[in-house]
Amino acid sequence: MKRWPGYAIFQIELRSRFRGWGIIFVLSLYLLALVALLVLGLVVLLDNQGLDGESLFLVLLGSQFVLLCVIGPLSSCGGISMEHERNSFELVITTLLRPVDIWTGKLASAMALGWVLFACGLPMILFCTFIGGVSPWKFLFGYAFLLVVYLCYCTFALWVSCMTKRTMVSMNIVTVALAVINGLFPFVYMIVSEVGVLDQGPLQAWVTYWGVMMLSPLLFVEGWLTDTQMLPPGTGVAGGYSPDIILLAVSLYLVAAVIFGVLTLRRLRFPRV
């Protein structure tokens, strides 16, 4: 059977990523953060409404969302730039590997890291489901959406990496982008909601869905899973989280991933002989 051409890159990236103390440090930190957040959520829940599997699951999923969507892109943003920095890129592109093989190999290794991080959290997921109350549909959607967002962020990080050719620069750009998407947008939404400037009108609906919900995946998934009705009635916009809206969000991130992928491949198409 003929192997997938990007396998060479995938294998070497995995070996580089998963060897040495770096990965042990990352995994330990990830697990510590996850356990700390889960315990915090557990304490808050016990103090307020009592032990509830679904609420605990939401805390866990939200924590995983934040951690994975930070670790994944940050570990991918050196994918191409690091090759330039250590002068290994020319040795790679003068082989028979095509740009698409290089890109898929690097993306697959980033996805593998995501899988490992997800797998590390499995005992905690099982704990939540053991308590009960987690709907399978929400469980599946939550992680499917996480997968799509993670994929999109990693393709974005790879694109930035091949644009900048300096890992430190691409790391800064990716960090700022992540902070804006996952921090600034929800913050702006909160301010806007509190002030009430956009209340009771179609403009708020527009801002809610497009400006905040779609661009801030964490807010979107948490809102959906907690059945938050963020739209006031009578706005003229279909409210709630209908399947259409969910599909739209997933499609949005997939399309973004494809766009970043195409941009990266255009940049990697080197040399132009």
Partner: peptide
Amino acid sequence: GFPLGITVRECLGFYARA
């Protein structure tokens, strides 16, 4: 330069596959 964190054999194996 070469990918770091891999052995000489793995490094050549990578290029051979490529």
